[in-house]
Computed example of a mutant assay.
Amino acid sequence: MFQIIGIVCVFAMVFGGFMLAGGHFDVILKALPFELMMIGGAAMGAFFIGNSGKTVGKTAGDLSKLFAGPKWKPQDYRDLLALLFALTKTMKTKGVIALEAHIEKPHESALFSKYPRIIKDHFAVDFICDTLRMMTMNLEDPHQVEDAMEKQLEKHHHEASGPAHALQNMADALPALGIVAAVLGIIKTMGAITQPPEYLGAMIGSALVGTFLGVFLAYGFVGPFATRMKEVYDEEAIFYKIIQSVLVAHLHGNAAQISVEIGRGNVPSAMQPTFLELEEALANVGSE
């Protein structure tokens, strides 16, 4: 919602101010298609050159995140804590053998299948299962486990946040591409130097539209889009950090309920369940 308001505000303030100052849109509108073709086309071409096909595809697929925000909602955090509670409690009370049935085939597990949104996230499921599998192999040093998990999280976050970096690079390039378009306009103008001043003035105005468009797109849209996308990726990464904090707390010998309470403290404030809400969620797990 705020992103839509922001887009409307950018257009209204920039072009509204231009109009109120006595500016005329005829030169801009006449030059806009050609300048947009040069600047936008060059920006897209550079985007394809500088990024892998995977990054290009992920960027296109993740554009909806600009408006929808992070995919994890408050219920997902409660579900994650409930799932981790069930797994750590099973490991502590029933032993490794009982746990293996869940982590070897999580998609067939009665515990995982209760939380369909989590089980659809391959990294979350693999992250949980791989870490618990390390624990079953007697890797019980909390610091070693935490270090191994941290490296996995860093790798995943680096790969997931590729589109944000790609968009920021495009934003950085747009002003320069605007100058390229403007220089081409000046070259065209110099070729008509014998024309009357009013004709040359219109041509110079058209050339300057390129500079304006490059800066306008970079700082008005693409740069803020990159910032917003990075913010979304950073918040989504917290979901996985909670897995790390709960499992490491479990390795330190804490009871399952204490471990998930430690994890609850890491949930973003806007998504964080209250202590009573978590108690109710864990009671439901215990009764099933």
Score class of each variant (00 low, 15 high):
Ala256Val: 03
Val260Asp: 00
Ser287Ile: 12
Gln257Pro: 07
Leu276Tyr: 13
Val260Gln: 03
Leu276Lys: 12
Leu276Met: 15
Glu277Ile: 05
Val285Trp: 06
Ala249Ile: 06
Thr274Gln: 09
Ala255Cys: 10
Pro273Phe: 09
Asn266Met: 13
Gln272Gly: 08
Glu280Lys: 12
Pro268Ser: 01
Thr274Met: 08
Met271Val: 09
Glu277Tyr: 01
His250Cys: 10
Leu276Ile: 13
Ala270Arg: 10
Leu251Val: 06
Ala270Met: 07
Glu280Met: 12
Pro268Leu: 00
Gly253Phe: 00
Asn254Trp: 08
Ser259His: 02
Leu278Asn: 04
Gln272Trp: 06
Pro273Lys: 03
Leu282Ile: 10
Gln272Thr: 08
Asn266Gln: 14
Ala281Val: 08
Gly286Lys: 14
Gln272Asn: 10
Asn254Ile: 07
Gln272Leu: 05
Ala249Tyr: 04
Asn254His: 11
Ala249Met: 07
Pro273Trp: 10
Ala256Thr: 02
Glu277Lys: 09
Glu277Phe: 02
Gly265Cys: 07
Val267Pro: 03
Pro273Leu: 06
Pro273Asp: 08
Ala281Lys: 12
Val267Asp: 00
Met271Ile: 06
Leu282Gln: 05
Asn284Ile: 14
Pro268Lys: 04
Ala256Phe: 05
Ala255Thr: 14
Ser269Ile: 15
Ile262Phe: 05
Leu251Lys: 05
Ala255Ser: 14
Arg264Asp: 01
Ser269Gln: 13
Met271Pro: 04
Leu251Gly: 02
Ile262Lys: 06
Ile262Glu: 02
Ala256Lys: 01
Ala270Asp: 12
Pro273Arg: 09
Glu261Pro: 05
Leu278Arg: 03
Val260Met: 00
His252Ser: 11
Pro268Glu: 00
Asn254Pro: 02
Ala255Arg: 12
Leu276His: 11
Gln272Asp: 04
Asn284Asp: 15
Ala270Tyr: 06
Ile258Ala: 06
Gln257Met: 12
Ala249Arg: 01
Thr274Phe: 08
Asn266Gly: 10
Gly286His: 10
Ser259Asp: 07
Pro273Met: 07
Ala281Arg: 09
Met271Thr: 08
Gly253Leu: 02
Phe275Ser: 11
Pro273Ile: 08
Arg264Tyr: 05
Leu278Ser: 03
Leu251His: 01
Ala255Val: 10
Met271Leu: 15
Pro273Ser: 08
Val285Ala: 06
Gly263Asn: 00
Asn266Arg: 14
Glu279Asn: 11
Ala255Met: 14
Arg264Ser: 00
Arg264His: 05
Ser259Arg: 02
Met271Cys: 13
Gly265Ala: 10
Glu280Cys: 09
Val267Ala: 05
Asn284Tyr: 14
Ser259Leu: 01
Gly265Thr: 11
Ser269Lys: 15
Gly263His: 01
Asn266Pro: 08
Ile258Tyr: 04
Glu279Cys: 07
Thr274Ile: 04
Ser259Phe: 02
Ser269Tyr: 11
Ala255Glu: 12
Asn254Gln: 12
Glu261Lys: 09
Gly253Met: 01
Glu277Asn: 07
Ala283Gln: 09
Val260Gly: 04
Phe275Leu: 13
Gly286Met: 14
Ile258His: 02
Ser259Lys: 00
Leu282Val: 10
Gly265Trp: 03
Leu278Trp: 08
Ala270Trp: 07
Ala249Leu: 05
Glu277Thr: 06
Arg264Val: 05
Ser259Val: 04
Leu276Ser: 13
Gly286Arg: 13
